[in-house]
Design a protein around this nucleic acid. Sequence first.
RNA 1: GUGGGUGUAGCUCAGCUGGUAGAGCGCUGCGUUGUGGUCGCAGAUGCCGCGGGUUCGAGUCCCGUCACUCACCCCA
Length: 447
Amino acid sequence: MSDKPTPLSGFPELLPEHRVVERAVIASLSRTFELHGFANIETRAVEPLERLSKGGEIDKEIYVLRRLQAEDSAGDSGLALHFDLTVPFARYVLEHAGKLEFPFRRFQIQPAWRGERPQEGRYRQFTQADIDIVGRDTLGFHHDVEVVRVMAEALAELPLPGLSIQVNNRKLIQGFYRGLGIPDVTAAIRQIDKLDKQEPGAVVALLVSEAGASEEQAWRCVEMARLRTSDTVYLREYVEGLGVEDELLATGLDELVAVVDGCAGVAGERVRVEANLRIARGLDYYTGTVLEIFLDGYERLKSIGGGGRYDALASDGRTTYPGVGVSFGVSRTVVPLLADGALAPGRKVPSLVLVALADEESRPASDAVARALRSRGIATEVAASPQKFGKQIRYAERRDIPYVWFPATDGSDGTDGGTDHQVKDIRSGDQSAADPHSWTPAEETEK
RNA sequence: GUGGGUGUAGCUCAGCUGGUAGAGCGCUGCGUUGUGGUCGCAGAUGCCGCGGGUUCGAGUCCCGUCACUCACCCCA
């Protein structure tokens, strides 16, 4: 008992019937991404620490690697586990720039690690699915629209509740703040991001104290952030009606309208793309489009995905590689939904057929049946031991194997003239004669 | 990192003001001797998280510790 391992908080491990769902999600996402020409890559789990830590809040969540033999705590290797897929990707682009074709579009589905306190939907190891498009020196704005569309399409294919992709634009925010005359625009963005958990009055106070805004300016920031709509005509009216003139603001508004309008085609009942002027994103490398994804009914999970435009995340000094991308939290979404039954578990075992075993002497006959079925792509296993058939049926039932196959007997054991092959659908109880070289399972049991 | 909650059978949990451990589900067997699911009967299973203290006696009270969990912070 004391030998029984206890769970490690924040490192979720799925049972087979749950893992099969996660794998289906990953396969579905991959299919959609590839349909749009995104190539897959996998980056190493580890990056040099100084590349990861750029002085953000996230620094203290980084797991550092250290050899056990290292003399003391100062002896870390300078290597650390990546905490997202964007930073490693930027490094990858710089490192392999000479061998890549630009604009480079890739998707990446991998674990990432963060040393924070776990909670529902927040883990220390989690799988993330990212798509990005990166250009050399320049990257057309239409790619902003494209990545959002692709992710919207990919998410629409998944068996999830409804969700919304809420889009904003850093240029719009910055231009508005600049036009308003706020001294510290960056600080103001960080504060306005807190609107969803703080009272407007509290955020106003922060804007005044942290960003040097006047009280009146602060209230206008809060007012601007209030709008959330998928109606871009109204969006334009509203923003222009705020009475702030700024070139950057106008550009940002145009871009935001373009993204929302550009996604109108894929947006449907379950996946909505809308403008939300409160979305800012904490990370400071975003320069234009920013977005976050929220699951209907699971707002408590906060965003299940996010992303945006970054014009200068990767640069080797001579060349800059602007990019735009979106990431989706696979673990963050799948694990809580499985836990509360919103996602139905899959089967525990891939086998569709269990071939019964009469006795050890007839194992070759059972194996032959299994081989015939497998040769036609039907996942099949042979019973582990020649127990009573009732037991063997229960074995199949417990593993969610829908069919049990009773091999033919040739009558050589003297019982009678022998029997035909029989296959039983244990969900319905129906049993009938069948030929292992031609029998196929009913439609609905195929994956 | 800070604060709250919880650790009892494989799982979910009960166990009163301290008196030597329980239920449901699951599991095993039998009824049913090579066709499951229902039903009935029988059975197995616990260092009561760990360490210390109080006590004649601790699952129960006290202290510590570890783990899990929730919230804050931050984010996928």
